[in-house]
Nucleic acid binder design. Structure first.
Lengths: 161, 161
DNA sequence: TATTGTTATACTCTATAACTATA
DNA sequence: TATAGTTATAGAGTATAACAATA
């Protein structure tokens, strides 16, 4: 088995271990691992995002994000207001309760982050992050075969603020 | 942002990119990425597995695996026979059609594996696999805080054949 | 015309708990 | 008593397509 053949399953196994550990850890707090990611995306940005921006950054699908937002809105962690300059859009942000919740969740996640690093030194952790970003980057940029030559310009997409 | 803080999201982003690319690639063949993993697990073993063994190796839950097997059985890719020596157990294996299907899928997956490696040289690919295995290993072994000292013996579990 | 979001819909994966049959 | 699998049930995420409102 070459590294090429092992890589997909190794990536999957590591992610599933992370996802299950996170779900278990966050279950006590009434949120899922994916909902945590959504809250973290809002918290990290610091400002309100449209649902589309949120979907891009998760990354996820607009209709998936909407379903998640409805759940989080019921719990009072996010609010969706009319966008000031674009009446089509919704401006999504954390409520005060949502900010507090995120801080609690972030602390709860410390256990998981420590667990991931237990078998790595800090150089290895940095290397791993870098390699994962490289893999994600090349998977997300098209040109799978040579079929879509016209999409070369899309291989790095800047995101307007 | 330290590597420790970035690692979970980097792992998630890389896996989701892989998962989506795989689902897109395999959709033409009528299976999901996770069903591919199940078929690959059976193919890799070479021999029949019980549903429990299959669940452990995926890794997944026995009842999840059952639901997937029902779907794959309808498509004629797997069969579940009575286990020869344990009447409680089912012996799951690929049908002839399932083996052919897996070969087709494996070839279709080549595009994805190449996509993952496009930004890595072969040393980096091996390093990445190793680091992912280390992370998965420490996430899967207990002792999250210091609460479960008695579970130290479980930190490496051998699997009987 | 293109874009933002909503709605309806459907499917897969996930997982728990109660259960039957067997070891 | 413990284990393998089934069943019922529920929920979460995923995604497509048709649609309304707005840019």
């Amino acid at each position: 088995m070459t590294a090429k053949e092992k890589l997909p399953l190794a990536l999957r196994a590591a992610y599933l271990a992370l996802h299950r550990a996170s779900d278990a850890q966050f279950a006590d707090h009434g949120v899922t691992a994916d909902q945590f990611v959504l809250l973290a995306t809002l918290a990290r940005g610091g400002r309100a995002l449209t649902q589309r921006q949120l979907a891009q950054r998760m990354p996820s699908d607009p209709s998936t994000v909407r379903a998640m937002l409805v759940l989080l809105e019921k719990q009072g962690f996010v609010e969706r207001e009319r966008h000031p300059s674009d009446a089509r859009a919704r401006s999504v942000s954390l409520t005060a309760a949502g900010k507090r919740k995120f801080q609690t969740l972030w602390r709860a996640g410390e256990t998981i982050r420590d667990g991931m690093l237990r078998a790595l030194d800090s150089d290895q952790a940095e290397t791993l992050v870098r390699l994962l970003q490289q893999v994600a980057g090349s998977l997300n940029s098209p040109l799978p075969g040579a079929a879509t030559g016209a999409s070369l310009v899309l291989s790095s997409h800047k995101e307007a603020s």
